[in-house]
């Protein structure tokens, strides 16, 4: 007798992308480009702040990209993409009107409910501002749900500063404190000079009701976490978003595995209480 065909899984392929259209694109720096994307049918991405998407440039492949807009902006989502590989290189050649593929959103994102009623200290270094921006914008859009908001941002030099319009807005807003620094200032730079940890001396927090949101390059984590800990913020309220090169985004391909967790599923947002048990985490 022939093997009877058993039920096949009803769920769709994990590899099926949705088509999206770039409606705005512009260079933010020499290496980073900004994109605003509307999905087919205009449906909202429905992401949580801190989640990421797998972007397809057909013919080149996929790359995990963090979402830099807030879900409070429903008609489109935004990304800030550094030109570092074949997919991102082709993305940099795309302008408004071009289409690309998208899977996601993936990852746990930040638990914005748990953070409600707390003060939030944002610490963003370099390209880490991209994922942080989505969270910052969410908090500022729901300003009354959160306590004091402080934003620290550091870049290598003034020419690498991202989202300058947002930076000016945050600087001007009376309901949030904003501090900025560059490692290597140019002649025109009048602000703080030095790595991001030098900004902590401008900041006073109440550790009993503060969440620290720290996103930056791997080298930054250790020092920024140390500052947050020395302010007295508990490990479980120091939140970091880890970067890995997820090939699938759904806990199969193994590339983002640290110990028994997959960064794409259990992360990318982890508290320091979790990270300290993950060898090779940061």
């Amino acid at each position: 007798m022939t093997v009877k065909e058993k039920n096949t899984p009803q769920a769709g392929s994990i590899f099926q992308p949705t088509i999206g259209k770039i409606v705005a694109a512009k260079m933010l720096t020499a290496k980073e480009k900004y994109f605003r994307v509307v999905l087919e049918g205009g449906k909202p991405l429905g992401q949580k702040p801190g989640q990421f998407v797998e972007i397809s440039v057909f013919g080149a492949g996929e790359a995990p990209i963090s979402i830099c807009s807030s879900p409070t902006q429903e008609d489109s989502f935004e990304m800030c993409v550094r030109n570092v590989g074949s997919v991102t290189n082709l993305m940099h050649q795309m302008e408004a009107g071009a289409t690309l593929g998208m899977r996601g959103p993936y990852g746990n994102g930040f638990d914005m409910e748990a953070m409600k009623g707390h003060d939030v200290l944002f610490v963003a270094g370099g390209l880490g501002l991209a994922p942080a921006r989505g969270v910052i914008k969410y908090v500022l859009d729901k300003r009354r749900d959160y306590g004091d908001v402080t934003i620290l941002y550091g870049a290598r030099n003034p020419s690498e500063l991202l989202f300058k319009e947002d930076l000016s807005e945050w600087e001007a807003r009376p309901d949030c404190a904003f501090h900025i620094t560059v490692d290597r200032p140019d002649d025109a730079w009048k602000g703080n000079k030095g790595v991001i940890t030098t900004l902590f001396r401008h900041v006073k927090v109440d550790p009993s009701k503060t969440y620290a949101v720290i996103i930056g390059p791997p080298v930054m984590y250790k020092y920024a976490i140390l500052e947050a800990l020395s302010m007295g913020i508990p490990e479980s309220r120091i939140l970091c978003s880890l970067e890995r090169r997820m090939k699938c985004g759904v806990g199969k391909c193994g590339h983002c595995q640290i110990g028994n967790v997959y960064v794409c599923k259990e992360g990318p947002v982890f508290s320091y209480a979790q990270i300290k048990r993950l060898r090779e985490g940061i």
Binding site: F15, E62, R82, V84, E243, R244, R245, K247, H255, I258
Partner: peptide, 30 residues
Amino acid sequence: GERKRIWDSCQLDEFAEVAGGENFRKARSA
């Protein structure tokens, strides 16, 4: 065009490399 999924190996140098060039398991022992 076609998108392929291909067996990979965690023993290869670039397996845990990320976009910025950071490699979380650069050492063979790791």
